[in-house]
Write a protein that binds this DNA or RNA. Structure first.
Length: 104
DNA sequence: CAAGTGACTTTAT
DNA sequence: AATAAAGCCACTT
């Protein structure tokens, strides 16, 4: 049960994610909103299957956390791109208010 | 058309 | 801060 790569939804999501510049991020909900939809979960599924071809680490959750189970792999990218982060003793989160970006 | 599946979001414990 | 529950959307069976 996987998303069809021919779906317009998939193409749009990948296109938007690919548009996010380094050092900036968007939440799943924002990406969905950019598509005129609220399918945050659907966006997550697209990333899960086709995220390999786009900067998936620039798409995070509402609380400023990277995709579940992938936060450790995403951290190096943030450090390298200078993405606003709020580090903690045991974890970290994105400084969403400062890093948030929307297509113009 | 109905049911199941998520890299989600929000609100309430 | 961590969990739980309910709501939502696109897609597959």
């Amino acid at each position: 049960m996987r998303f069809t790569p021919d779906s317009a939804f998939v193409a749009d999501v990948l296109d938007i994610v690919d548009t996010i510049p380094p050092g900036r991020v968007m939440t799943y909900g924002d990406v969905a909103a950019a598509l005129g939809s609220r399918a945050a979960r659907a966006v997550g599924q697209v990333m899960s299957h086709y995220g390999s071809d786009v900067p998936w680490w620039r798409v995070i959750r509402a609380g400023g956390h990277p995709p579940i189970e992938h936060e450790d792999r995403a951290l190096p990218f943030y450090l390298a791109e200078g993405t606003p982060l709020v580090t903690s003793a045991t974890a970290y989160r994105i400084d969403y208010p400062a890093a948030r970006w929307s297509p113009s």
